[in-house]
Amino acid sequence: MKERRKIDLFGAMTMLVISMVAFYLKNKLGVEMTGLSLQSFVYIGIGLFILGLIYTIMETKMQLPYFYGKCQSGGSNANSFVVMGIGAGFIGSSIASEVVITLVLIAVAIAIRMFMDKRYKEKNEIE
Rank of each mutant, 00 (worst) to 15 (best):
M1G: 07
K2C: 07
K2V: 15
E3T: 12
E3A: 12
E3C: 09
R4P: 04
R4K: 15
R4M: 10
R5H: 13
K6D: 14
D8I: 02
D8W: 06
L9Y: 12
F10S: 14
G11I: 01
A12L: 03
T14Y: 07
S19P: 03
S19I: 05
V21L: 11
V21F: 08
V21A: 07
F23L: 04
K26A: 10
K26F: 04
K28Y: 08
G30K: 03
G30P: 05
G30S: 09
E32L: 12
M33I: 09
M33N: 14
T34H: 04
T34K: 05
G35I: 09
S37A: 13
L38K: 14
Q39I: 15
Q39H: 13
S40C: 08
F41A: 02
V42Y: 04
L48K: 04
F49S: 04
I50C: 10
L51S: 05
L51A: 12
L51T: 09
L53K: 10
L53W: 11
L53F: 10
I54P: 10
T56G: 03
T56C: 08
T56Q: 09
I57T: 08
M58K: 14
K61N: 10
L64N: 02
Y66G: 06
G69L: 09
G69R: 12
K70C: 06
C71A: 12
Q72E: 15
G75M: 06
S76M: 14
S76A: 13
N77Q: 15
N77I: 13
A78C: 13
N79I: 03
N79Q: 12
S80W: 02
S80E: 01
F81Q: 04
F81S: 10
V83T: 06
M84H: 00
I86N: 04
G87H: 00
G87P: 01
A88K: 00
A88M: 06
A88T: 01
G89K: 01
G89N: 02
F90T: 01
I91T: 01
I91G: 02
A96S: 14
A96W: 14
A96D: 12
E98F: 05
V99K: 07
V100W: 08
T102P: 01
L103P: 04
V104F: 12
A109R: 03
I110F: 15
A111E: 04
I112F: 00
I112G: 00
I112L: 06
R113V: 02
R113S: 10
M114T: 15
F115I: 15
M116A: 12
M116R: 03
R119L: 09
R119V: 02
K121N: 10
K123E: 09
K123M: 13
N124L: 14
N124G: 07
I126N: 06
E127A: 13
